[in-house]
Structure formats: structure tokens, C-alpha cells
Amino acid sequence: MSFPSQVRVFEMSPRDGLQNEPGELITTAVKIELINRLSACGLSHIEAASFVSPKWVPQMGDASEVMAGITRKAGVTYAALTPNLKGVESAFAAEVDEIAVFSAASEAFTQKNINCSIAESLARFEPVLEAARNKGIKVRGYVSTVMGCPYQGDVDPKQVAQVANALYAMGCYEISLGDTIGVGTPLKAKRMLEAVNRDIPMNNLAAHFHDTYGQAIGNLYAVLEEGLAVVDASVAGLGGCPYARGASGNVATEDVLYLLQGLGIETGINLQDLINTGDWITRQLKRANGSKVALALGAQHEQK
């Protein structure tokens, strides 16, 4: 296989990056400005919100207000995570462009996370997919713990393929393969992708790798080499998994973009604008920037 000539970067920071941020609730205004800044960087896909119960994910409690407040840019898809039919209805009312559902390749993780089996979690998505079909809205499917689980350890690539196939058969146009706790290595990533790609075309697959062990960029190189052309990432490396002890954030979008540029792969994204955005949001959150590229190249602060 050879590297793709173009890669679509799916920006996760407004949802996956902020949903587990500790401390005070992040203001709606900050979330709106983050999304608007990301849109201006040249990103074509942004997961902007999650329509879940504020009881379980307080940081996402203002999803409707966020969607109402953003300045929508032509050519940008603003997506949202919708775990159930109630969430879907709210997402439709907020005029999201695309929705997503979320399962796992590990039975133990699914039981601990949402208190049901993998099969039961998939069954819950059927009315969600039906509602989206009736509305003409695309659905993305996430499979977490594709290379390891905090409770059961290693995850068989065949199990990943089974869950991915089920979501694809339901009608998910794209399956995002998530190394939720960041334990994967390049060879594991290749073998996992090969198992899934037996039944699902490469054009319908995405990589969602966390950087807990510092392997995310190496793992992405491995799957890009196989022809995968969609990468999930989060500016400044924001995010993490609340169910996995020590699990750090998503791979930083700045670091992914630097890798892609080095490989001569087109993205349509401005790296310096992205670095500036990552610097801005980490200052708002009063936290360290998780991007090595951002730290090396530095932000160009606006003159005020």
C-alpha cells in the first residue's frame, strides 16, 4: 500500500477534548470561540458537541446553545455525538450536519462504561440510525478500545472487526477506530486495521488514537502507510478517557499536521493558525499544551 495523497482531519477538541475537563464548567462563549477559530484554520470536519445528559457529562450540558452560537462556515461539517434517540432529537433541533454513535470492542469496557453488553449497545443504536436515515443525516460510528482495554487487557482484532462490521451494516458511513487508552503500537495498529479492512473499505475507516504511551504518531504512520485517509485529532492534545487510569489526551492535531506535511500529504489546514488556536484554548483552560509541535514552533500571539 502507499500513503494517501490527501487526508481529512476530523477535529475532536470541542467534544472529546472538553467533555472530561475537570473543574468549573467551561463557558459557552469559550466553546463557541474555539469552534469558530478551528473553522478558520481550514478544518473541514469538527465534532462540536455531545447531546448527552448533563447529569453524566456536565461539560456538554450547553450543546444546543453552542450549536446556536457558532458562525457556520461553508464547507465545514459540524457534528455531534448522540448516544440515544433523545440526544438525536436535540441534535436535529440544533441543526447539526452529522451525528455519531459510540460502542466498544471490549465487553468489559462496555459493561463498565454504559452497563450493558456490546450487542445491547448496538441494538440501542438502531432507532438512532433509523431517525437519521429519515432525516437524511449521515451517521459516524466509533469503536473504542480497539487495541487494548483498561479492564480486560488485549483486545482481539477479530472482535474489533465484528463491532465495526455491525455499525457499518447498520448504516454508519464511516467507522472511527479508537485506541482509547493509547496502548497500541504500530504493528498492533496494522493488524487491527487489516482485520477491519477485510469487510469494510479503507475509504470508510478512520483512526482515533490517544497518546498515553507516546505511540500515537507512530501508530498513525503505520495506518497511513496502509492507505487510511481520515484521522481524528484534538488541538493541543485535549481530552482523555475517564474510565482509563492514566489515559492522556487524543493525539494533538498540530503534531498530526506536522507529520502529514512531512509526508507531502494535503490537508487544507494552516498549521500556524492551528498552533495559535491550541495556545489560546489552553490559556483559557489554564492547562499545559499537549502538542510537541506547538511547543517547538510557538504561537504568534494576537496584538491587542
Rank of each mutant, 00 (worst) to 15 (best):
F125L: 11
F125S: 06
E126S: 14
E126H: 10
L129F: 15
E130I: 04
A131E: 14
A131W: 11
A131S: 15
A132R: 07
A132G: 09
R133V: 00
K135S: 15
G136M: 14
G136H: 12
I137R: 05
K138C: 02
V139K: 05
R140S: 01
V143S: 03
V146G: 02
M147A: 09
C149D: 12
Q152F: 00
V155L: 04
K158S: 13
A166F: 04
A166S: 13
Y168E: 02
M170C: 00
M170I: 01
C172Y: 09
C172N: 10
C172L: 11
E174I: 05
I175Q: 03
I175P: 04
I175W: 03
D179T: 05
G182N: 06
V183P: 05
V183K: 06
G184D: 03
T185G: 12
T185S: 11
R191G: 02
M192R: 12
A195V: 07
D199G: 13
D199L: 11
P201M: 11
N203G: 10
N204I: 01
N204A: 15
N204F: 05
A206R: 11
Y213I: 00
Y213V: 00
A216E: 10
N219K: 07
Y221D: 04
A222L: 09
V223L: 10
V223S: 08
E225P: 00
G227D: 04
L228M: 15
A229G: 03
V230H: 13
D232L: 14
A233F: 02
V235N: 05
V235G: 08
V235L: 07
A236Q: 04
G237E: 04
L238K: 07
G240H: 13
G240M: 12
P242E: 14
Y243N: 10
A244D: 09
G246A: 11
S248C: 10
N250G: 06
E254P: 08
